[in-house]
């Protein structure tokens, strides 16, 4: 790696001040597992990194409240994986984390980093979008609220300004939600996914009242699939409905080809996995 300066601010406010609104070579670093890869690959040469490792402790904890969970952005993925509050509120997140990358990465990578990095292959964003999670984003002029589904604008791109930081993630109460996340690999079993599908259903037995369906990995960003959601809403689930939802999803998602599969193949995968994910969600029981 090529030399750079490292700043270690003691507070979030100080960190924001150290970031530069117009300089792409100054970036925040949390767990660093993703950023280090980019630096080692020579695709990112920072002049200064602003480490978030020493900011206030309140940004790395999980708090349960009446309306859901508040997760500090610096919370590690393994802390989230082991959180009993998380498991109670949304076991789908606990299950997802269990197969997210590996133990060493989860010990270091943070929730905020997993969102801000905006790699479409990551597992957490589609699940958070399906569960209707939101974020508090801190910038020079204070904090703003944003739904996770509005964060991503494209491949490794977000609406975040260069001097903004995700401070906290909020997962609302999930009473009666049935959710599942399925990832499909086409290389080794531990490959990055060729496709991720997250679904969260409000349902009465087999009868779906409303659905949130999210695709990731096969597309340039994690995104909801309104056509598939509409095909499921108000329906009693059977093979025909799932086929219709799969068809809608296959038609509306904007696939990208890569070493993990062609557009045609990923379309077929999504068509099949919409149904598999909905069935898995129904079988998972309500949160």
């Amino acid at each position: 790696m090529i030399p750079f300066e490292l700043a270690e601010p003691k507070s979030l406010t100080e960190a924001i001040k150290l970031l530069a609104p117009d300089d792409a070579m100054v970036r925040p670093i949390a767990g660093g597992t993703a950023l280090m890869l980019m630096m080692k690959a020579g695709v990112f040469h920072p002049t200064r990194l602003v480490s978030l490792g020493k900011i206030e402790k309140k940004y790395s904890g999980i708090a349960a409240g009446k309306d859901g969970l508040r997760i500090g952005a610096m919370t590690t993925l393994s802390a989230l994986e082991q959180s009993l509050d998380m498991k109670k509120l949304a076991p789908v997140i606990t299950r997802t984390l269990r197969t997210l990358s590996n133990v060493r990465v989860r010990n270091v990578a943070t929730v905020g980093g997993a969102l801000a990095h905006a790699d479409p292959h990551m597992d957490l964003p589609p699940v958070l979008i399906a569960l209707g999670a939101s974020m508090s984003i801190a910038g020079p002029s204070g904090e703003r609220e944003l739904a996770v589904e509005d964060l991503f604008t494209g491949y490794y791109e977000t609406v975040l300004q260069k001097n903004e930081l995700i401070a906290e993630v909020r997962v609302p109460s999930q009473d009666g939600t049935r959710a599942a996340y399925m990832k499909v690999t086409t290389g080794s079993a531990d490959d990055w996914p060729a496709l991720g599908v997250a679904v969260a259903l409000q349902s009465d037995g087999n009868a779906v009242k409303s659905a949130r369906v999210v695709v990731s990995a096969a597309t340039s960003k994690a995104m909801r699939l309104p056509g598939a959601e509409a095909a499921l809403a108000g329906q009693r689930i059977d093979d025909k409905i799932l086929a219709r939802a799969g068809e809608a999803a296959a038609n509306e998602a904007d696939f990208i080809a890569d070493v993990r599969g062609s557009v045609s193949y990923k379309r077929e995968l999504l068509r099949v996995y919409i149904g598999r994910a909905v069935r898995a969600a129904l079988e998972s029981g309500a949160h």
Binding site: G32, T33, M36, N107, V108
Partner: peptide, 8 residues
Amino acid sequence: AVSGCLFL
């Protein structure tokens, strides 16, 4: 456990 190669 951490990956030493990704740990500053």
